[in-house]
Design a binder for these strands. Sequence first.
DNA 1: TGCCAGTTCTTG
DNA 2: AAGAACTGGCAA
Length: 820
Amino acid sequence: MAALAHVVPLTSVDGVYTYRVPDEMAAEAVPGARVLVPFGRRQITGVVAERVDGGTDGLKPLHDVLDARPALPPDLLALTRWVAEYYLCAWGEAVKAALPSGTEVESRRVARALAPPDAWDEKRGRAILRALHERNGTGLPVAALAEVLNRKTVPQNLLRRMEAAGVLEVEHEVQDASVTAKTARHLRLGDGAEDAEVRGAKQRALLDWLAEAGEVVLQAEALAATGASSSTVKSLETHGLVEAFDAEVERRADGMDVEAVPPAAPLDLHPAQTAALEAIVGAIQTARAETFLLHGVTGSGKTEVYLRALREALDRGKSAIVLVPEIALTPQTVRRFRAHFGDRVAVLHSRMSPGERLDAWTRIRDGVYPIVIGPRSAVFAPVGDLGLVVVDEEHEASYKQFDPAPRYHARDVAVMRAYRAGAVCVLGSATPSMETVANANAEKYTRLEMPERVPVRGPDGTTRQPAPLPPVRVIDLTRERQIRRLKGALSHDLREAITARLAKGEQTILLQNRRGYAPVLTCDDCGWTPACRDCAVSLTVHKASHNLRCHYCGRAERIPRPCPSCGSPALALLGSGTQRVEEEIEEVFPEARVLRMDLDTTSRKGAHRKILDRFGRGDADVLLGTQMVAKGLDFPRVTLVGVVEADTGMLLPDFRAAERTFQLLAQVAGRAGRHDLPGEVLLQTRNPEHPALQFALRHDFHGFALGELGERMALGYPPYGRLVGVEVKGPHEGSTFALADRWGAALRTEAGRVAGVEVLGPVPAFVGRVKRWWRVHLLVKAPRSLPASVLASLVRTAEGRVKTPSGHRVNLDVDPVGLY
DNA sequence: TGCCAGTTCTTG
DNA sequence: AAGAACTGGCAA
Ligand SMILES: [Zn+2]
Ligand SMILES: [Zn+2]
């Protein structure tokens, strides 16, 4: 019997592999520790899943242990396993999602020349030697040699002969992690430095400064402050007056390194807030694993409830995770948390460099930061002793990951993580998802309602009463057109409403959820329309960059002058994107200052922020943009919100289309008339009777949810059914459909064994080709009563019976979000 | 016969 | 995913 370790390799290869644990690694190769293991003919990173005793027959030894402290605490390791099983991916893929990226260690085959190029008397061999000589210090990865010879495969045979002849060597070389901890020189006063006599002024200054600063300081900082140099340090060091040493430093993301402002004196909580807080605190105090739906309208003070619940968790020595959609993770948001919890808060966000992310992650694991705020991936933050998980805006689709696997929903992982940790989970939203509402209805979650807006404190410290929810008016575009009042995208009434705001110096937000100038260009004479070469979509006309662009692959083309199909000059622009609406506003209201906010104006770093700041300062009268305008801040001078085309997205082939439309309309409507200025919302539509719109105009979430849940139940869709999406991709139409057909047959065979399971498709994806990949979808549908694990193993069995030809891909997507 | 592209198989 | 072995077409 010997010490063995079951190891999860960090690749998409599924399975756990067993290794012998050499004695010197026995203490560190514990569950959760990352290890370097031989895997096939290379070395890769894995994570120890379990230690066991057993025979070593045919087992390879661990090569190395990469962590002095396990990277993953046991609860997280177990969580990744649940994620892999639930979301149908390899365990290693789930573990990767929980670890900071770039820290993997792997081996590569690297070749080096041992002789000059003319030592080989054949053309290909000389070309290889020449290429190797160019990079003989580092060597060249063997995989790169195919390209050197302009071939698709590496000439293994030739390499072996050359190696045997001694003109080159090929070795498996372990590549260090691309991201590592950073160290820097630190200084500390030595013993007896206080009353030491030194001659140099610089030396004196440095010692005084160190005495003043106390304890340990960065050498760079001390030198900059005193004008001393590293030789000053050296000579002081030789006399034992200072100690210099290397220590780890934390790289911090500038954008989020906001100063902690002292929290404003707490406002008295509104009764609904008090009730919600008491319920949450009660659960934290008794360490009850309870999940709450905190349903609070915009402005009802959800964040204040989060802050106080976090305080409670922290006071009990627990840690907490706050998930926030990436777009809402602004300095303002961070400042609010920092104001209360100072540097006990770590912020994770997508703009961090890999080094910053690693440093934050390490410190979270070591307990330096008991509160973690971040987007989707922060659900895996390695905090210990979890007491509370908050998921703000829990309905946000951005919590669902698509690529790469695991295709997890952070809200659902959060609920599961909290449950397993015996922690409290709070799901907050003004427009909760149907899934969460159904769970609350079924009393799996405790429902907390905050139906009223609460008073807010102005910058001057005074409190102001909130505005009531604004009245919403629907404008029927079909009718407007019939009575010939419609010229352009903005109706007569919307134009009048904008005019009135301009006259009063108030602001307007306009939502047009479509970027570009015109979604379609078409020939009036022959009907020709430009389509993307690589995707099955028409190209959008962009006026700012003056070209045609594909919104799926980014491809740009010139706008054709006469129709390339028939030569007619009559090319018409159909529909309006944000650019065209902007142009219309500038024409109709030449005096208005307009800010356009969409993917095209916010792609540069910080541009998003800048636009919102300018609008907030009153530098513009109109903020026009795509859905991102719905998620901005609270702008007190906005009294009009106009939705140019409420129909965008409403009619997409997605069973959640109505839900998403309602959420967007409710969210944007909530932007009008906060504080003491009453607001107004105008919705332009060609479907005035659509329930999403009808309920949004009455601010009636419960009415909408009731109807929508009824539909879902009738159709067996989530939250009353389970779905697994199967996305089949391939380079040719025929082969992709053929593969999808085989999947359909395999799934139907398996579905036939379980009552209630249905297979839909294969059907071409909504966009049937993207970036040259044909895409075909299948959907497996089962009643909620069927355990997820049964459905999962059904799909896994089918998967085992269909082999994927090379060049094709099949992605399994449990609880898919978006178009299927 | 050897090269090459494409495919299949294995990883402890 | 990556490396290696295998297969079959084809040029010399
Ligand atoms: Zn034409
Ligand atoms: Zn395209």
